[in-house]
């Protein structure tokens, strides 16, 4: 066909992009390299990766059993045998920190898989349908946003009773509204775009437009938001642990570790300093990673 000939050589500047190997995998590798080029986001990636390794290979990395008590070596200062010292029951702080990363990741993971879909669904629906659907959903998010999140989480845990799962639910309940707001704002700009109109003209149902067209475009900014959110989740989880409403002893949770270590803080600084440093480092890492992802995924910076 003659037309096809014409098309193939019609734009010289696009030749480079016409490489068929320019696939999803290649794109991912390229994006990852770009992410690592910035030293700040690269350090975020490294710390998050270390956290993942710690959680997966905890039994290999930990030097002691995190729950094993050794009353002969109570409150020992950091040494070669106990790198980060021991706590009031003689448990190894380093090993507890390593196992604590499992708890932290468990909370982050559960909260994110609850908050992401719920926020996306509520946000895109209220943005797409508008009218009374929008009014109802947005007033509900307004109510949730108008409470300080820790207070709200406290109230929920108090009502449900302390425990790790309840802490997760409480944190999820307090952190979905900003995600929904974001998804709604994105949807409002996408709703009238030509490709959505084209889909409607093809007879696509609202459900199809939401899932196949709009959600896909909301994902990048949502991922950035959720990554940033993980830092807050860690802090809230630690705060709940500190107040004794999160993970219950003897489970090694960083916030709870600080809480119990507080009584011995003046003589045994390592009980508070190391879990505190871990919390700070990890939440900082998620913030840096989020910043890097935003530079990468935000279409406005392209």
């Amino acid at each position: 066909m003659k037309n096809a000939e014409v098309v193939r050589n019609s734009d010289y500047s696009l030749k480079a992009r016409h490489n068929p190997e320019y696939t999803r995998v290649a794109l991912f590798v390229k994006s990852f390299k770009k992410l690592c080029r910035n030293p700040l986001s690269a350090s975020g990636v490294i710390i998050v990766a270390l956290l993942l390794i710690c959680a997966i290979a905890a039994p290999l990395i930990a030097t002691h059993n995190p729950l094993e008590q050794d009353l002969a070596r109570v409150l020992a200062s950091p040494s070669l045998a106990h790198w980060f010292g021991t706590d009031e029951y003689g448990r190894d702080v380093f090993s507890r920190l390593v196992y604590g990363s499992r708890v932290t990741l468990y909370i982050i993971f559960l909260v994110t898989i609850i908050v992401g879909p719920v926020g996306l669904l509520v946000g895109t629906m209220s943005g797409y349908f508008g009218g009374w659907v929008d009014s109802v959903f947005m007033r509900i998010t307004d109510i949730f946003i108008s409470f300080p999140s820790l207070v709200l989480a406290l109230a929920f845990v108090a009502a449900l009773g302390p425990g790790l799962e309840h802490a997760v639910i409480a944190i999820a309940i307090t952190s979905w509204p900003p995600v929904a707001r974001l998804a709604r704002a994105e949807t409002l700009t996408l709703r009238n775009s030509d490709y959505v109109v084209a889909a409607q003209l093809q007879g696509a149902s609202a459900c199809r437009v939401l899932f196949h067209y709009i959600s896909l475009m909301c994902l990048p900014s949502l991922i950035v938001r959720l990554t940033m959110n993980m830092a807050t989740v860690i802090l809230t989880a630690a705060a709940l642990g500190f107040l004794g409403l999160g993970a219950q002893p003897p489970l090694p949770e960083w916030g709870a570790m600080i809480s119990t270590g507080r009584s011995y803080m003046l003589e045994s600084w390592w009980l508070v300093a190391f879990p505190g440093a871990a919390i700070m480092l990890v939440s900082l890492a998620f913030n840096l990673l989020g910043d890097g992802l935003r530079d990468l995924l935000d279409p406005r910076t392209e």
């Binding site: 775009s193 030509d194 490709y195 109109v197 084209a198 409607q200 003209l201 896909l216 475009m217």
Partner: peptide
């Protein structure tokens, strides 16, 4: 709209905005 789609389709001005980028 669903019935309309069998008889009528549209081509838009901006060829980039009319195709879903992903």
């Amino acid at each position: 709209l669903k019935e309309r789609s069998n008889t009528m389709q549209m081509v838009f001005q901006d060829p980039y905005g009319a195709l879903h980028p992903r």
